[in-house]
Nucleic acid binder design. Structure first.
Lengths: 144, 144
DNA sequence: ACCCAAAAAGTTACAATGTTGCACGTGCAA
DNA sequence: TTGCACGTGCAACATTGTAACTTTTTGGGT
């Protein structure tokens, strides 16, 4: 058993999830992605014939276990990214901004850029925050 | 012709859009909404029998004309809100945070709360920013 | 190594949201 | 008032996601 498979297996068991081919596959795809992926994008990277319903259920259980988080997008699809190492089912530390490239459409997790706080009007209580930037990414900058 | 109809007509013509019953209706619904609405929510508030396809096309042309803007959401549906008065087709001044209530699901435009700036890594150039908070709104706070 | 209960996967069917292509009707300006 | 581009309505369809139900797999206990 290669080391990467071992690592995936450990991550699953640490979050109380059973070892299955689909779960290992989905986790591998998301862990290896440099940016957030939609359900259909993940499906394309999985072995042909992987069941779509099972994929969505896998994403749901991963999200509930704190293994991945949703990344908001200005379009109409939900995208997912692997959580950083310190996430758990109890608390997501998804405190970084996201950046969507308008050229290549990739959504990056800028882990090193924290979401700044805001002061809300009286009687609004926030429990989570999302900050999405759109523009041109590193890879798509015009040469110069 | 009542004053409100006159105002709607003026807004449409200022953005180079024709006067039609559907457009006036959609604009009236969005202008009167205290929070962002999805396509189907708008449809429900329009006269029965209004064509769904026409509605989506209307929303698209409104967005392109700068009359309304998309409000990002952590769910999988796109929501729209009327732009503030100073928006145009060329530039949106949608520089306020949005707040989604996890109890009543409403999305508020907090016009008085500006989006704070962040410093991006080298070679990332942002042109737009979205900041979405989730929590419990004014109306849904437990009494006390 | 085997059994079993629970969990996950697979199948079918369905719902919601949104789009495309085309024919027809209407707002608006000449 | 007439032309016609633009908007509408319709049918069909694509994509994304879910519900109910059955079959298979996983992992713990024996």
């Amino acid at each position: 058993m290669p080391a990467s498979t071992d690592r995936l297996a450990r991550t699953l068991s640490q979050h109380g999830l059973r070892q299955t081919p689909v779960r290992r596959g989905v986790l591998e795809v998301l862990a290896g992605a440099a940016f957030a992926l939609s359900g259909s994008e993940i499906e394309q990277q999985l072995p042909a014939g992987t069941d779509r319903i099972t994929l969505y259920r896998t994403l749901k259980s991963f999200e509930e276990s704190g293994l991945i988080h949703r990344v908001i997008d200005s379009s109409d699809v939900v995208r997912y990214a692997a959580c950083s190492i310190e996430c758990s089912a109890e608390a997501h530390f998804d405190n970084h901004v996201h950046f969507k490239c308008t050229t290549c459409q990739h959504i990056y997790c800028l882990n090193q850029v924290a979401i700044p706080a805001v002061t809300l009007p009286a009687q609004f209580q926030a429990v989570s925050r999302d900050y999405l930037l759109a523009g041109v990414c590193r890879e798509c900058q015009p040469a110069g």
